[in-house]
Simulated scan of single mutants.
Amino acid sequence: MDREYTYLNCLAELGVGGAHPGGFKLTQEILSAEHIGKKTTVLDAGCGTGQTAAYIAQQYGCQVTGLDHHQLMVEKARKRIRSLGLPIQIVHGNTEALPFADSQFDLVLSESVIVFTDMPKTVQEFRRVLKPGGCLIAIEMVLEQPVSPQKLAHIKDFYGVSRILTEEQWVQLFQEAGFPSIHSEKYDLQFGVQNVPDFSLSEDVDVKYFEMLEHHMIMFESTKEILGFRVFRCKTV
């Protein structure tokens, strides 16, 4: 696949918000169960176009920082935040080397981000920037059942990821990063269902990106029994 036409570039050019498993509705449901107050410091890691970061600031009135590695996503997030007049800092940075001090955040939210990175580095960085008693909430795809090497290679190639982990492998990854308390939850949602995406289109979007989005939907239908997702709550002490 031409490296220019990647899944992440597709999301950026189309400005897709809520593209993660479960979509924005799941995000709202998850956050409603957390104890978020005005003094809570939140990092939306891989914030995309800023949909979730804006919601958290508006809903809870707390201090929110958004970070994304994709420059176009950062630009679109900053535009959203300016239009809403919200006091949110949007940072261009890498989850594998976060530009933040140790123990800076009470909550790190990562919505289908870790799988696209060097996973051990990213999880270790999330652990580093969390305060004692802080929490990482990660929504990530999981491999639900064995699949042929050819099929798995096709999925990884399309999404541009190096590995797709089982639930047990995810738990091990979080444990190795130093999280002493890990809770995994499977929601009664299909991968991507109940997700009404929020779009912020670039000008003159290449038609190939629309074709990629269609390919993604076809992929979703053909892998529903193979790919699922979990919400991981990883606590520090």
Rank of each mutant, 00 (worst) to 15 (best):
G46V: 03
I164V: 08
F100C: 11
H216E: 05
S222R: 14
Q89H: 11
G17S: 09
A33L: 15
I155P: 10
Y7S: 03
E13K: 10
K39Q: 12
V231C: 00
L67F: 03
H215G: 00
C62H: 15
E4S: 13
H215P: 10
L8G: 06
A97R: 11
E96F: 03
A53Y: 12
Q28D: 05
F105I: 06
V74A: 03
V193Q: 10
G46F: 00
V129K: 10
A57T: 09
K39N: 12
V207P: 06
G15L: 03
L107R: 14
L8D: 09
E144G: 06
L143Y: 03
H216M: 00
H92K: 13
G22D: 07
T122K: 06
Y159K: 04
R230L: 07
T65G: 01
S148V: 09
C234A: 11
C10Q: 14
P120E: 13
N94S: 08
P21C: 00
S103C: 08
Q172W: 15
V42E: 05
E4Y: 15
V108R: 01
M141Y: 00
P149W: 14
V231K: 01
I114P: 01
T41G: 10
I139E: 00
R128V: 02
A54G: 04
W170M: 02
Y5T: 00
L109C: 04
P120A: 08
I226P: 06
Q150N: 07
F179M: 06
L130N: 03
L98G: 06
V91P: 14
Y209G: 07
F116M: 06
E29A: 08
R230Q: 04
G46S: 03
T65K: 06
K39A: 12
F179S: 00
D206K: 01
G61N: 11
Q172L: 14
C47R: 03
K131G: 00
Y187S: 07
S162Q: 15
I90V: 14
R127I: 01
I30C: 08
Q104C: 11
F179P: 03
K151S: 14
G46K: 01
L67Y: 03
T122H: 08
S83T: 10
G48R: 04
R80N: 02
E203G: 07
S110G: 05
D102V: 05
I182R: 13
E185L: 12
I90R: 13
